[in-house]
Simulated scan of single mutants.
Amino acid sequence: MLDDFLIRAALAGFGVALAAAPLGCFVVWRRMAYFGDATSHAALLGVALALAMDLPILMGVLLMALVMALIVSSLSERHVSTDALLGVLAHAGLALGLVAVSLVPGQRVDLSAYLFGDILAVSKADLAVIWIGALLVAVLLVTRWQALLTATLNPDLATASGGHPHREQLVLTLALAIMVAVALKVVGALLIAAMLIIPAAAGRPFARSPEGMAVTAIAVGAAAVAAGLFTSFVFDTPTGPSIVSAAALFFVLSTGLAPVLRRN
């Protein structure tokens, strides 16, 4: 069954949705949409690092995503304007990554695959990495869910009850770095943040609890993957952007349907 490239692509997309959607809920709740951008754009620096040092691409991407996430987390605690900080780091990370990749000697790199993903070229080994990463993220979120939720919605309450908001921030940082590393092949650096934020935003109007929002976001992400693959197959459109476009369409529909459903 896994010899069929469309089956592999669908399974890879579902793995990314499983990791990205609930993690995206925390990004939405913290109002840090640029956080995903900054971390994902740093992935290109990781690609350059891996090529220059002859390391596995996954290792370089994971390392740089983690470094960028830690930088953002550290600077945000120093009362630097979060929006401005994340905007600068996101665009600087992308620009530096593109420059660094172009300077790696003796390497011809298909930048479009790293920018927009190449889900149809996912191999069995890639699929294993994606699902291992997705399950790691899921385990991190499930085991730390209540602590993460309290630290996100009310840091003062978390501290008063013996929690450690900074530690929970580090857990989210680690989870985000893992998600970026495994999602790069599927949707690319430019679209990873979209798969974080759009399914979570689309599921928000229908959720009556944080857990409900996370589950709905996963469902929206999985549906977007299926719809994007179908659109790409039928109309020969780029697959990664097609998946994100489908997610955006679901967001528009959820935004329009939610008020109608509430009235009924």
Rank of each mutant, 00 (worst) to 15 (best):
M53A: 15
M53V: 14
D54W: 05
D54V: 06
L55N: 05
L55M: 13
I57K: 00
L58Y: 11
L58T: 14
L58F: 15
M59C: 03
M59W: 10
M59T: 14
G60W: 06
G60C: 10
V61R: 07
V61S: 00
V61E: 03
L62R: 08
L62H: 09
L62P: 07
L62C: 05
L63P: 01
L63S: 12
L63T: 14
L63I: 13
L63Q: 00
M64H: 06
M64A: 11
M64G: 02
M64I: 07
A65Y: 02
L66R: 01
L66N: 02
L66V: 05
L66Y: 10
L66S: 08
V67M: 09
V67H: 01
V67K: 07
V67Y: 01
V67W: 01
M68E: 01
M68V: 12
M68S: 06
M68Q: 06
A69D: 02
A69I: 02
A69E: 00
L70W: 03
I71D: 00
I71L: 07
I71S: 01
V72D: 06
S73V: 09
S73H: 13
S73T: 12
S74D: 02
S74Y: 09
S74N: 04
L75W: 05
L75Q: 09
L75M: 12
L75P: 05
S76K: 14
S76G: 03
S76T: 10
E77A: 14
E77Y: 09
E77N: 13
E77I: 07
E77Q: 15
E77H: 14
R78L: 12
R78N: 01
R78C: 04
R78Y: 04
R78M: 10
H79P: 03
V80C: 02
V80N: 00
S81M: 05
S81F: 03
S81C: 05
S81E: 15
S81D: 15
T82L: 02
T82S: 05
T82H: 09
T82I: 13
T82V: 15
D83T: 08
D83M: 03
D83Q: 12
D83V: 13
A84K: 11
A84H: 09
A84Q: 08
A84N: 11
A84S: 15
A84Y: 11
A84T: 15
A84C: 13
L85W: 08
L85C: 06
L85E: 10
L86Q: 15
L86T: 14
L86E: 15
L86S: 04
L86C: 02
L86K: 09
L86W: 07
L86N: 07
V88Y: 11
V88K: 09
V88L: 15
L89E: 13
L89Y: 12
L89S: 04
A90C: 05
A90L: 11
A90N: 05
H91K: 10
H91A: 11
H91L: 13
G93T: 03
G93W: 07
G93F: 06
G93M: 05
G93H: 05
G93D: 03
G93N: 15
L94H: 08
L94A: 08
L94K: 12
A95Q: 10
A95W: 13
A95N: 12
L96G: 10
G97W: 03
G97A: 06
G97I: 05
L98C: 04
L98A: 06
L98P: 03
